[in-house]
Amino acid sequence: MQRSSASFDHFSSQLPFGPKTLVLGAAALVAYGLTRRSKTGTALAAAGGLLAYKAARGQSTESSTHAVFLLNASPEQAYKLWRNFKGLPRFMAHLKSVRELDSRRSEWIALGPGQREIRWHAEITDDTPNQRIAWRSLPNSDVYTSGSVEFRSDPQGRGTFVSANVRYGIPGGSVTSGLAALFGKNPEFVVREDLRRFKQLLETGEVPTTRGQTHGPRGIHGHTEQVLFREKTNLPDPQVALAYSHSA
């Protein structure tokens, strides 16, 4: 065990990508291995698990999450979609609701692991139309959080760079424990996927999903695979089906 773990450290330090990529790559390996349903498959999955563990352990506790996407829209369109805070849950999968209290303050409710509600009040600290929005939580919230999003027109005329920086913490706890409380083990993944959904919503008017689609009997295998591919946690609720259920 000692030897094999040492060689994994060596292996991961040789790779041309960082620990976060490695975590997800390893997750894919686990997923791939488990779909094989064979001895080699199990071995692959185990190798993936070890890689993920090694890579996750290597992550700095100070990291705040960051993601960037180039979108086919103007900064004005992007700013407008984001600035409408009550619409944020359409692309931020963990948010249940955002309510604007006045022009600066808002109340946020997120769903943590196990559907636990986490609430905070936030205030806008910067609002530069079509360029930047920044916010931070107010004292006496369940979590400490701050974040910003920037919209920068591509000088090559290919649309808008949207970059988001988000930090979370628990009062008295570390940044990472706050992130984990909100997002489970992979905050970087969540912020990146939220921003991807923002791009999808802006470019197409909807966020793609297969949640609620028809399919054959899943059985134990099918359900396990859905968990592995994060289809239970990462797919947004369908928009029309939601609208129907609200009106019904």
């Binding site: 894919a28 086919n72 470019e203 793609p208 591919f229 994060r230 289809e231 990462n234």
Partner: peptide, 29 residues
């Protein structure tokens, strides 16, 4: 294909940026 991403606009329809809800898996591979 969504018809409005950079790939679709370039007629690279089978490379649409937006239509895969599980894009993260494909990105890893």
């Amino acid at each position: 294909a969504c018809g409005n991403c950079h790939s679709c606009k370039d007629q690279l329809w089978s490379c649409c940026d937006n239509s895969n809800p599980n894009a993260w898996i494909a990105e890893k591979m």
